[in-house]
Design a protein around this nucleic acid. Structure first.
Length: 293
DNA sequence: AGCTCGACCTGCACGC
DNA sequence: TGCGTGCAGGTCGAGC
């Protein structure tokens, strides 16, 4: 799935297509995504104007007229594709407008007043959508527990020291915990830890001394931001099914140092280690046991 | 409270 | 070719 960089790119793509547009119609092919779509979903969207599209963690939030907020998550395999009215230039290649949104996993289709269609496709249906009044967004059960934005001001060595203090969970697991930092996923945690020279198996609490941040936390934050920004610039990472809203693949997967490279030599200059794969809390971790400590 | 694991769902790559 | 197995970018909630 999409992690923060991929979600950010999708969010920008949606903003480009939807900003200032009125939703003229909504077609629901399936109501059962990760959670059932809320009552009256289509009717509550129709006629609303899109005033903003943004991201919080891995959630995309569209602000609609009359104070409605459309909350969306792509899960593992969710994807939005934008079909302009005269959709000939899309990188998806040739297609017919009438056929967009008719695929077996095309669950939701938004039609905009300028003829654009936006299709939500999600084979595994781990994604979700919900519609809530603006005033209730912050207290939404999926929003309220989210931690700081990794690219925002809130992520500081002091914050991480506070979050990690006393925790025996592996550093990898702590960074994947959306309640601490919102938006990191399996790929970019592996990559950021590699670049930081920190072992994913180290207990998170070992980077806190007397409630003060270990200097390596500053490096970790720097590398987290660096890897996320580079990935955004590269258009995200495409492993299987991620694509931007224009159907194009990302390119960051070609830049992985450790992710999905088990057995390959460590790319750090002078390091003789090989990338190792192990399972942590049910998910693959890739790292160099020699230079990550 | 913190942590791990199973469950959710489909598709694909692999080995036999 | 066909089938079984394991794996996949996430995260919620049960159970220890």
């Amino acid at each position: 799935m999409p992690e923060l960089p991929e979600v950010e790119i999708v969010s920008r793509g949606l903003a480009r297509a939807m900003l200032g547009r009125r939703i003229s119609g909504v077609k629901l092919n399936r109501l059962d995504l990760r959670f059932p779509l809320p009552q009256g979903f289509a009717a509550r969207l129709e006629g609303r104007t899109v005033e903003a599209v943004g991201r919080r963690g891995k959630y995309i939030i569209a602000s609609l007229s009359e104070g409605e907020r459309l909350l969306m998550h792509l899960g593992m395999s969710g994807r939005f594709t934008i079909f302009p009215r005269h959709g000939k230039a899309s990188s998806l290649g040739e297609f017919h407008f009438e056929e967009s949104g008719g695929g077996i996993h095309d669950h939701v289709v938004f039609a905009l007043d300028d003829g654009t269609r936006i299709v939500y496709t999600d084979p595994r249906r781990f994604g979700m959508m919900d519609l809530v009044p603006a005033a209730e967004l912050a207290s939404h059960r999926l929003m309220k527990g989210l931690g700081v934005e990794p690219l925002g001001r809130g992520l500081t060595p002091r914050y991480l020291a506070c979050a990690f203090d006393g925790r025996i969970a592996p550093l990898k697991a702590a960074l994947l915990d959306q309640r601490l930092v919102a938006g990191l996923g399996n790929i970019y945690v592996c990559e950021a830890l590699f670049r930081s020279g920190l072992s994913p198996t180290r207990r998170a609490g070992t980077l806190v001394k007397d409630r003060k941040p270990d200097p390596r936390l500053r490096t970790l934050i720097k590398e987290i931001r660096s890897v996320l920004k580079r990935a955004i610039t590269a258009g995200g990472s495409t492993l299987r099914d991620y694509a931007g809203t224009d159907g194009t693949s990302g390119a960051y997967q070609h830049r992985f140092s450790v992710y999905d490279r088990p057995g390959k030599p460590c790319v750090r200059r002078g390091c003789t280690g090989r990338v190792k794969r192990l399972i942590q809390s049910g998910r693959s971790t890739f790292y160099c046991p020699v230079c990550q400590r």
